[in-house]
Design a protein around this nucleic acid. Structure first.
Length: 427
RNA sequence: GUGGCUGUAGCUCACCAGGUAGAGCACCGGAUUGUGACUCCGGAGGUAGCGGGUUCAAGACCCGUCAGCCACCCCA
């Protein structure tokens, strides 16, 4: 029997990187809370129809990338390929959109694609969705929030904001038919994929990577020229807001996004540091989606942020290592261990944020100190026969300095001094 | 889904007209028995991704398969 391995595209996040995840997640929570966003936790499975109707029947995601199967009762259900659909469903189902509502969620998404760096079959997104505000100050807010997160994580310089407006449904339809009409003339010249999209999703031809197709597109009709007045005005105001609040951006008239539900503002934060998978965060406005799911006519805007890609970006700047524990406790034998245990527990109570590692499994002092050294701890606490019999502890700095013995009673103060912290006495 | 590259100890890699595997790091133990790092000595660890084929003989060649990577595609 072959050894059992994780299935393709599903990866384990090991301890050497899980701390980075925690760091990113904590930063995100902090930033989100700072803007008044609240967490919503959603199922990872939904009715297949939910995704088909929101994302778009003819998108790649729905056509060939979903994990879809029959529930035991025969219903077709799917693992979520993205979060917005489920979030909108929940908002409608629980009537959450009656007031301005700022939401976020974090969790795994599933897409059956060929894995590559920055692209897995199970990956993780932070999703942010804001309901109830139609004006571009909402768009600006979520972009500001993004930028704050980039700054908090030190990746602001690696990310570029690309911005576009794809207008309302009517103006987009007008543009689409003009575009199709134009491209029909060059049917034989454009690439195969684009020819297919001529029928299914013509807008996607705009960001084709084929150079010949690109040339043809470049001299064709421009989306911007077809924008309705409201979209145009909002788009200009958004740019103005971003400029005054210090968010740099680049207009990309060919940015259209792959999902059907977007309108007006669309954007992507991209990097060149990750190869072909350069989009770290993407989103926009989706004013019609809530209504489409039977809710009120509530405008909305949001984005999805790829956590793996964000973390890859941080790792690309250099190795990220988890800081070592502060203290390593060494004991000479069983009785010393019993002696030390309550004292170490008291220390943990007094300094809940210190990481104190107790040596386990016995062994000679020599081997215990080897462990202590390897642990990277700054300080070893030594409980030997001598210490135990006269109620003292030896503090041995492991990164330089002389060791000294003190009375048990002074341990707390000595530790506080060494790490320049105060006792919190939290239990 | 398409094309290409790769797959040898925990990690990074090597060897080899095809003759049943080696280094560095990591790991474990020791260098007079209450003290780590440096040094020295010793040790453990691989049916060479998996399956099949060619051959007297394959990790090395061929086929298949699985996985990773790169590009396409797609997007996070």
């Amino acid at each position: 029997m072959d050894s059992i391995k994780a299935i393709r595209g599903m990866v384990d996040i090991l301890p050497e990187t899980s701390f980075l995840w925690q760091h990113v997640e904590a930063a995100a929570r902090r930033v989100l809370a700072g803007y008044g966003y609240q967490e919503i936790r959603l199922p990872v499975m939904e009715s297949t129809g939910l995704f088909a109707r929101s994302i778009g029947e003819v998108t790649d995601i729905v056509e060939k990338e979903m994990y879809t199967f029959e529930d035991r009762n025969g219903d077709s259900i799917s693992l979520r390929p993205e979060g917005t659909a489920g979030c909108v469903r929940a908002v409608v189902q629980h009537n959450l959109a009656i007031t301005p509502r700022r939401l976020w969620y974090m969790g795994p998404m599933f897409r059956y694609e060929r894995p590559q760096k920055g692209r897995q079959r199970q990956f993780h997104q932070l999703g942010v969705e804001a309901f109830g505000v139609a004006s571009p100050d909402q768009d600006a807010e979520i972009l500001l929030l993004c930028q704050r997160l980039w700054q908090a994580l030190g990746v602001a310089d690696d990310l570029k904001l690309e911005l576009n407006s794809i207008g309302n449904t009517a103006s987009r339809d007008r543009f689409r038919s003009e575009l199709v009409k134009y491209l029909q003339q060059y049917r034989g010249d454009i690439d195969e994929d684009s020819q297919r999209r001529l029928e299914t999703n013509p807008l996607r031809i705009l960001d084709s990577k084929h150079s010949r197709t690109q040339e043809i597109v470049d001299s064709g009709p421009r989306l911007l020229d077809f924008l309705d007045d409201e979209s145009r005005a909002d788009f200009e105001r958004l740019q103005d807001l971003l400029s005054t609040s210090g968010v740099a951006f680049e207009l990309n008239p060919k940015l259209v996004r792959g999902l059907d539900y977007y309108n007006k503002t669309v954007f992507e934060w991209t990097t060149t540091a990750l190869g072909a998978q350069g989009t770290v965060c993407g989103g926009g406005r989706y004013d019609g989606l809530v209504r489409q799911f039977g809710g009120k006519d509530v405008p909305a805007a949001g984005f999805g942020l790829g956590l793996e890609r964000l973390i890859l970006l941080m790792q690309a700047q250099g190795e990220q290592k988890e800081p070592a524990a502060e203290i390593y406790v060494v004991t000479s034998d069983e009785s010393a261990y019993r002696h030390a245990l309550p004292r170490v527990e008291a220390l943990r109570s007094a300094f809940p944020r210190l990481r104190i590692v107790q040596h386990l499994g016995g062994g000679s002092f020599k081997s215990q100190f080897k462990r202590a050294d390897k642990s990277g701890a700054a300080l070893a606490l030594v409980f030997g026969d001598t210490e135990c019999s006269n109620n003292t502890v030896t503090l041995k700095p492991l990164r330089g300095g002389d060791q000294r013995s003190i009375d048990d009673a002074g341990l707390s103060d000595a530790v506080a001094e060494q790490f320049e912290i105060e006792s919190e006495e939290v239990f």
